[in-house]
Amino acid sequence: MSDIPQAVEPASGPPSLAEWAGGGEAFARIFTRFYERVREDAVLAPVFAAMDPHHAEHVARFVTEVLGGARLYSQAGGSHAGMISRHMDRHLTHYQRRRWMALLLDTADSLDLADDPEFRASLVGYLEWGSRLAVMNSQAGVPPPDADMPMPAWTWSSPGGPYQP
């Protein structure tokens, strides 16, 4: 028997992006503040004029789940197809999408969300992918999504794509 200590594998892998960010509570703070700011934004206020009072909570739960956190969104009956359906026929523009991105990232910075380069690259990658998908699916004539489509699962290594085997 050797006296040389053996490397021990960690019990689990790296934290999820959601854990790294501070969990669902962090995303709830960000999206609550973000949608408060949306009401005052000349570009985005008209888009969200009829926003459900629980919209920030739903989006926070969706993003938390996509980034590897608690599955509160899907456990409450939410789905990726449902989220896509909420954007259909809204005729969103890339100008509105860019403003949404800028205001959301500014809000994240103002609330001190983790800003290390690796986390931010993954977060921005997901937000770019998701917001561009929202614009594409908001145009006229887009067929409804497949109800069985999987929830996206974005990880530290997702720049190659959101779905993990």
Rank of each mutant, 00 (worst) to 15 (best):
L44N: 08
L103K: 08
E36R: 11
Y126I: 02
F27M: 06
G82F: 12
H87Q: 07
D112I: 03
H80D: 00
A134N: 09
S12D: 11
W100K: 01
A26C: 10
M83H: 06
G23I: 11
V38F: 04
P162C: 05
L67H: 01
W156H: 13
Q139V: 11
E36M: 05
A21W: 00
Y35M: 11
G22Q: 03
A76Q: 10
M51A: 15
E57D: 10
E19P: 07
D116Y: 15
G160F: 01
T107N: 09
M51Q: 13
D52M: 14
L111W: 12
Y73L: 09
L104W: 02
D89T: 13
I30V: 15
S110P: 12
I84P: 03
R61L: 09
M101H: 02
W156E: 11
Q75A: 14
V43Q: 12
V63Q: 06
Y73P: 11
H94G: 03
A49I: 10
M83W: 13
R120Q: 03
R132S: 15
S157Y: 05
P14L: 14
H94Q: 03
A56D: 09
G22Y: 10
D3V: 13
A114Y: 01
L113M: 15
S2P: 13
R71A: 11
R39L: 07
Q96I: 02
S12L: 05
W154L: 05
Y95P: 00
D116A: 15
P5N: 12
A45V: 06
Q164A: 02
L17E: 09
L44F: 03
R29L: 11
R120A: 01
Y73C: 05
T155F: 01
A56P: 04
E19G: 03
P159Y: 04
M151F: 11
V142F: 03
A153G: 02
